[in-house]
């Protein structure tokens, strides 16, 4: 198939599935908490809604930057889709994109001049400090599979069985990472409702729409990476089922846990990472 078409197709799939999964998650959380909850399609409708709303720019914003950051976030996640489902390239690259996304978050927060955005920005820096699980996951996968290429990792798994069973602690650490990216999770300090909408507070209209699109693609991509790297070669329906299952688990966790204080969130993740690293090394030795 034509590469460009393939990319376009995958991006649209990622976007649609991402929004539906986020919607599903909100629905499940609502049901657990005894609320009716919004329809599953709500998040998608929200996203589309912002594209037909009027865009306004705060007077205090850092100008080209404030706009560029939304495009930047969108572009990097498209790049992630290209590197992931389309070409099955380097796993390291996806993690690089993940970290750059942190920067986008940070700056979307601080570029508006709003104190809430600023708070979110400082928290984004805090949460970026909690990237240790990420690196631990990378290192452990590399130690086990001996490669950083997604297609090679898939091959490895089709021969040796899913990595989920051989390095379960790495999978758990990665799951914590996914959890930290989901809304309302105990680690989602950048989007806590105590700071209104966190970094998104001061982005309106079109810009907000882009932010929400990239959020959806990000969610899809994280789940995709988890399924690909830890479970191995899957068919498309299996991906879909896996993503629904993961989103459901995340929703259950989010529904019953409070948001942590920023320090505690960071240190909790780091502590989990240290436990994970030590445990995985012990497991690898055995």
């Amino acid at each position: 198939m034509n590469l460009m078409l393939n990319i376009l197709l995958n991006v649209i799939i990622a976007f649609l599935i991402g929004t539906i999964l986020i919607g599903l998650q909100r629905k499940i959380m609502a049901r657990i908490q005894g609320r009716p909850g919004p329809p599953i399609i709500q998040h998608l409708l929200h996203t589309l809604k912002f594209f037909i709303k009027e865009s306004a720019f705060p007077k205090t914003a850092a100008m080209p930057f404030y706009v560029a950051i939304t495009a930047m976030l969108f572009v990097i996640w498209v790049a992630a889709v290209i590197d992931g489902p389309v070409t099955e390239g380097s796993l390291l690259l996806i993690f690089a994109i993940y970290t750059i996304q942190k920067i986008g978050e940070h700056n979307a927060g601080s570029s508006s001049g709003s104190p809430y955005g600023k708070m979110s920005c400082v928290r984004a820096v805090y949460s970026a400090a909690a990237e240790v699980p990420l690196f631990a996951v990378l290192i452990i996968i590399y130690l086990k599979a001996g490669t950083m290429n997604i297609s090679s990792i898939i091959n490895y798994q089709s021969i040796h069985g899913p990595l989920l069973f051989t390095i379960p602690l790495a999978a758990i650490m990665f799951f914590v990472l996914i959890l930290s990216k989901s809304q309302y999770s105990p680690f989602a300090i950048t989007k806590g409702k105590d700071i209104v909408s966190g970094y998104e507070t001061e982005h309106f209209g079109l810009l907000r729409g882009y932010l929400m699109i990239s959020e959806s693609i990000a969610w899809y991509m994280l789940l995709w990476v988890f399924l690909t790297v830890f479970i191995g070669p899957l068919s498309l329906p299996a991906y879909l089922i896996g993503m629904v299952v993961l989103s459901t688990i995340v929703a259950f966790i989010n529904a019953v846990t409070p948001i942590l204080n920023p320090n505690h969130s960071v240190m909790m993740q780091v502590s989990l990472a240290f436990i994970g690293i030590a445990g995985s090394i012990v497991l690898l030795m055995i």
């Binding site: 007077k59 205090t60 850092a62 100008m63 560029a68 601080s110 570029s111 001049g113 104190p115």
Partner: peptide, 8 residues
């Protein structure tokens, strides 16, 4: 090419 933001 960016300006800085104004903190309020």
């Amino acid at each position: 090419i960016s300006k800085t933001e104004t903190q309020v």
